[in-house]
Design a protein around this nucleic acid. Structure first.
Lengths: 140, 140
DNA sequence: TGTAAAAAGGATAAAAACATCCTTTATTGA
DNA sequence: TCAATAAAGGATGTTTTTATCCTTTTTACA
């Protein structure tokens, strides 16, 4: 479903979202917390920061965090940033010519299905997820 | 969503399903038809044949085909054979410890979603798909 | 019985994903 | 200003997926 990069990315964003406002976390801290390789995670965080989905400051006391704006983004944006738009848009069977006009055998089913997925992902706002993480002590 | 192997595999099975009963197709023919690399497809067909999801005969005039029993299998079985059960069963965020008891932040949503996907995939019977392919002249 | 056809199986190669390491840049605080 | 900290960026290595090639086995048929 999601690449490893994408899973790490989502988890990292959710971790940042569950921090107190004003607190930043460094790569090492996040990597330890999520139990994922730090240098690899660093690349992913860079990518998310470059895309404006998370925020960062360099230097002592620096690290990554979510601005209020960042916390308003949704899962779809994170996934799209890391894995690209194919999950929701490319033909499930990989046919380049697949379209409403020339559908593949799974086109109708896949589309109906992905409309639902798309809706869900676009309505999973980071800050809301963070709330339920805190409330229900969920794992990351 | 699906690996390339899995996409090729599904398409190949659907192609075999759309053949007249009694007709067999060789790797090269299938590969040409689907526009995928023949040696790679051969490996996938072998895997499906070994698992009993498609049938094959060696020698002159041989090739791959679907027995009536094969045509009664569903998409879930094909996908499970090639990509394994993770799509429907592993934690979407890749957490080894994720469970109903210790859920990840997406556990509930993912589960609801995948129940639907699972149901759909298990009810997409190959021979039914083949019928709609013929009727609606769908691409493979 | 021998030859050709076609799948099965094994070994190898190329590309992509995953992961690490080192240098540079920005920032803080002494 | 200088040293330390931490992200950014670039280069490199490893593993998995994707793809190719060659040999072996099975089968049909002349």
């Amino acid at each position: 479903m999601f690449s490893k990069s994408c899973k790490y990315g989502i988890r990292a964003v959710l971790f940042l979202a569950s921090l107190e406002t004003g607190i930043r976390a460094g790569v090492k801290e996040i990597a330890t917390e999520l139990n994922v390789p730090a240098p690899f995670l660093a690349k992913i965080l860079q990518q998310l920061a470059k895309a404006g989905l998370i925020s960062s400051v360099k230097g002592p006391g620096g690290g990554f965090y979510l601005s209020p704006e960042n916390a308003d983004s949704n899962l779809s944006e994170i996934i799209n940033c890391i894995d690209g738009p194919d999950l929701l848009h490319a033909c499930v069977l990989g046919l380049p010519a697949c379209s409403h006009k020339h559908p593949c055998p799974l086109h109708v089913q896949a589309n109906a299905f992905r409309q639902g997925l798309k809706f869900q992902l676009e309505h999973q706002i980071i800050k809301d997820l963070a709330l339920s993480i805190k409330k229900e002590h969920l794992n990351l």
